[in-house]
Simulated scan of single mutants.
Amino acid sequence: MRRVVFVVFILAALAFTKTDTAVNTTSVVVSSKSTLVVKGTTNVNAFSCVFDSKRLKNPISVTYFSNGQKLKFKETALVLDNGCFDCGGKGINRDFQKILKSETYPQIKLILKETSSLEDKSDVQTLVDVEIAGIKKEYKIPVTVRNNGTTLINGGLKVCLSDYNLEQPKKMFGLITVDDEIHIDFNLVVE
């Protein structure tokens, strides 16, 4: 019996021991000079929807801790209001909002989970959850980080509408169809 109590005590003590996990909290401001563009194609044409970065909710809270060569993040998200995208015209803006199910899910969330340096210190592998229309998917995204007074973060991501249970819209009795794959390109200026 004493042996069982001793083992339980050791396991309990180890469960509350943290190594190299000092939690840090800060905040950052994503500058209005930043760009975020959603690009797609149809069987006829290409389109791009530009996010109005002046309407970002700043500052963004960042909570992180070091875990070996990685930084792990908690509750660090870039929240994009769907209504802040401009696709170049009222009709396509309306279609874009409909694709994203904006009435029910008015925001896209990019949730930073982890970063790790690659061989070139300016290249970073990030682990990000992308939440669209209430569905969250995890992606590994290589990004380039430059720091010269302000931090510049560049990268891109390919997602499929079908991964988020989003229907590809059809126009003109099905003659024009949006392709399933879209690209999200970002160039964030962080202060």
Score class of each variant (00 low, 15 high):
residue 158 K to Q: 12
residue 96 F to L: 04
residue 64 Y to K: 08
residue 169 P to I: 03
residue 108 I to E: 05
residue 16 F to T: 11
residue 112 L to R: 09
residue 171 K to E: 01
residue 174 G to V: 03
residue 101 K to Q: 07
residue 63 T to C: 14
residue 99 I to F: 00
residue 85 F to D: 02
residue 34 S to L: 11
residue 139 Y to T: 07
residue 146 R to C: 10
residue 166 L to R: 00
residue 43 N to E: 06
residue 168 Q to I: 00
residue 19 T to C: 14
residue 170 K to V: 00
residue 51 F to H: 14
residue 147 N to A: 10
residue 190 V to W: 11
residue 23 V to G: 03
residue 153 I to G: 11
residue 8 V to G: 07
residue 57 K to S: 10
residue 141 I to Y: 06
residue 126 T to E: 11
residue 32 S to L: 13
residue 35 T to V: 14
residue 172 M to Y: 01
residue 144 T to V: 09
residue 97 Q to P: 02
residue 191 E to H: 07
residue 42 T to F: 07
residue 27 S to Y: 10
residue 189 V to C: 04
residue 26 T to Y: 09
residue 100 L to Q: 00
residue 60 I to C: 09
residue 11 L to G: 15
residue 187 N to G: 06
residue 89 G to A: 06
residue 39 K to I: 08
residue 159 V to F: 03
residue 100 L to N: 00
residue 119 E to T: 08
residue 123 D to L: 12
residue 15 A to W: 13
residue 173 F to V: 04
residue 33 K to N: 10
residue 8 V to L: 08
residue 165 N to L: 03
residue 102 S to M: 05
residue 96 F to C: 02
residue 81 D to W: 09
residue 120 D to W: 09
residue 165 N to Y: 01
residue 114 E to Y: 12
residue 136 K to M: 05
residue 183 H to L: 05
residue 165 N to R: 00
residue 87 C to W: 05
residue 38 V to I: 05
residue 116 S to H: 06
residue 29 V to Y: 06
residue 165 N to M: 02
